[in-house]
Simulated assay, not measured.
Amino acid sequence: MFRKALIASLLGSILVSCNSEKTEIQEVQEPKAEWIDMFNGENLENWTPKIYHHEAGDNYQNTFRVVDGAIEVNYDDYNEGFNDRYGHLFYKKPFSAFHMTWEYRFTDQWLEDAASYTYRNSGVMFHSQAPETILKEQDWPISVEWQMLSEEEEGVPRPTGNMCSPGTDVFFKGEKDPRHCINSTSPTFKWDEWVKADLIVFGDSLVIHMVNGDTVLQYTKPQIGGGVANNFDPQYKVDGQALTEGYIGLQSEGQGVIFKNLKIKEL
């Protein structure tokens, strides 16, 4: 009896030790996701501009610049007008499931030869094609947009955190939505007010837009489709193809805007 009790005791100790080791191994294999600073506050290292009418990497007239530790979209050097130079500044790598957060506010700079809808309007593109695959004369990247808007006319609602879809489709309330843009439920903000934005994306399933900590829009199944984007390479426009990952880009479309505190973590 004593021998059996001793063996049982030893086996119990071994099992406890093994379980403890498994727990430790599991903790090592599943580290907690860490926030990554996307912007170093000093220069545009790790970012690539792509502006309509220009090749990828050409930051025409210093459109995207670093001012006081933030990324600023600025048109001071656009001496020949806007000429539809819609632009995007892309981060260095693609993401699939992630949580991105940033703060933004508009400036009082707007080029009057830009389309009227660009007034106090900008955005962050995600699940985008890579900048080097965007043709010189392609106006918009095939992507999904967290659209940033501010008040245009006092007293008239103009929510921010909307969804727009150049060359893409999404499902809203369970059905594929034919609209190019879907409005969020956010309040309207003044143009010079700082707004905190969050974008949570789970591959090609759920997408969540948040404004100042509140969820304002949810949709699902981002995929290639729809219109708006023009002059693209057909190999990157396969309608119905699920968007499981892609690049992130900050937008410039004739309206001055400032981005700061850009962070991201993979989920």
Rank of each mutant, 00 (worst) to 15 (best):
E245M: 13
E21D: 10
N46C: 02
G174W: 11
D37W: 05
T23K: 00
Y91W: 15
G256R: 05
E132M: 11
K92C: 10
V66K: 07
Y86A: 08
L149R: 08
E80L: 13
R105N: 13
V216D: 00
T101A: 08
R105Y: 11
Q29E: 14
T220Y: 05
E175F: 09
G41Y: 06
I14K: 01
V207D: 00
G227N: 15
E193D: 07
M148F: 02
T107G: 04
I71V: 05
A97H: 11
N43H: 10
E30H: 12
V216I: 04
G254W: 03
G225A: 07
D239P: 11
V201L: 02
P94L: 13
C164I: 03
W191E: 09
L206C: 12
V228R: 14
G256K: 04
P141H: 08
W110S: 00
K265Y: 05
V16C: 09
L217W: 01
M148T: 05
G57N: 06
D239L: 11
E154F: 15
G240D: 09
N231Q: 08
A33I: 08
I71F: 02
F126H: 04
L15E: 09
V257I: 12
Q223K: 07
W146E: 14
C164Y: 15
Q109M: 11
D192G: 02
C181E: 12
N183S: 15
N62L: 08
Q61P: 06
Q26R: 12
V16H: 06
L206I: 10
W102N: 10
N46G: 00
A70Q: 12
E24M: 02
I200G: 07
Y60W: 10
W191R: 14
I258M: 10
A56F: 12
E24C: 01
E145S: 02
N231K: 03
W110N: 00
A197T: 04
T185V: 03
K265I: 12
M1R: 15
M38Y: 02
S150Q: 11
P49Q: 12
E103Q: 13
V207W: 01
